[in-house]
């Protein structure tokens, strides 16, 4: 393990933790899903760092690819409905917070 290895691993791990926090703390579905896809890709990189190429191959195809399209589809499906129906009572209560949304 050289210093460069430690720096790389440290930055990778911190980025993963930061992406996980941002994914779950965010309020915009679409943005959170994209952050999660980035998380999946970097997890695949972590598998390579840990000498697990078998897992990295599967993770790159599934974690970032297939899970990503599934989540994007669900986010699209639920966003339209959030706009029209589910947030109606929320909007009545909370006009101001709706201002920053991405709809």
């Amino acid at each position: 393990m050289t210093i460069a290895d430690w720096i790389f691993d440290g930055v990778l791990v911190l980025t993963l933790v930061w992406l996980a926090l941002r994914t779950l703390a965010g309020g915009q579905l679409f943005k959170s899903v994209v952050l999660y896809i980035a998380y999946g890709l970097l997890v695949a990189l972590a598998w390579v760092r840990l000498s697990a190429p078998d897992i990295a191959l599967a993770e790159a195809a599934i974690g970032a690819g297939i899970t990503g399209v599934l989540l994007l589809d669900a986010a699209g499906h639920m966003r339209g409905s959030i706009e029209s129906r589910s947030s109606r009572n929320l909007r009545a209560r909370n006009q101001s917070a709706e201002g920053g949304e991405d709809g």
């Binding site: 078998d54 990295a56 599967a58 690819g65």
Partner: peptide, 10 residues
């Protein structure tokens, strides 16, 4: 590295 799971996902 490879196998049914990776091949199946691709």
């Amino acid at each position: 590295p490879g196998g049914a799971f990776q091949a199946g996902s691709v």
